[in-house]
Design a binder for these strands. Sequence first.
DNA 1: ACTTACCGTAAGTAATGACTTACGAAAGTG
DNA 2: CACTTTCGTAAGTCATTACTTACGGTAAGT
Lengths: 113, 113
Amino acid sequence: MTYESVLTALADPTRRQIFEDLRAGPMAVTHLAESRAVSRPAVSQHLKVLQKAGLVSATARGPSRLYAVEPQGLAPLRDYLDTVWGDVLSAFAQEVKAQMQERSDTSTWEQET
Amino acid sequence: MTYESVLTALADPTRRQIFEDLRAGPMAVTHLAESRAVSRPAVSQHLKVLQKAGLVSATARGPSRLYAVEPQGLAPLRDYLDTVWGDVLSAFAQEVKAQMQERSDTSTWEQET
DNA sequence: ACTTACCGTAAGTAATGACTTACGAAAGTG
DNA sequence: CACTTTCGTAAGTCATTACTTACGGTAAGT
């Protein structure tokens, strides 16, 4: 639900691969595990994290369970980038211009990165 | 530079707080550390990770060092969300509609989440 | 030059998390 | 009703990583 959980969920490479594999459509846990280097319980645990983050949803299909991408799960992260950082990005250009004009004389700076 | 490094950099809560604190403007390491519960070297290490991810930049200011937000650092993550998941999101609505119409008869499903 | 202030790095420790094996539950099949 | 398949969870191990203390290095002030 929160953008923090989305970030931590997408930070792990294996979990991100599983999430991206689900782009092909809903899949069962066994099918997800056999095309990967980790065991099936590991995939289940990753899916649990993804589900808690709202990125995937589970559907009982007999004894099997189909996991599918929940597209609205990425909305918190998108909103975070837009609302929290959108203003900063737009305000940055102005500030840079202002500072460069303000300190055009005091030129004792030393850029590193 | 890559969206993976951005995700791992923003996954840690302390590191994310430091990054968000820099929205107020360029700050020195000591100033960042004294308003937080971790030591100064810890902040330095976090800033190193953020710098490698392209999220912040350092500027030598006398014996001090001013760290500033690098606004273009979030671009890889934005691009990842747009290119990789933008198509999936738009294609999802159509697929859902098609599936619901296709399986309007085989109604033995059981939603969980 | 000596001192002070600010910072990065090294080394070591503690904690978080990713993974495995083992087990039990739920649902279809004979 | 047994049997099989599929899956989640528990317990434990191992690797990653976040954190601390200690140290050295650089730049300004006196």
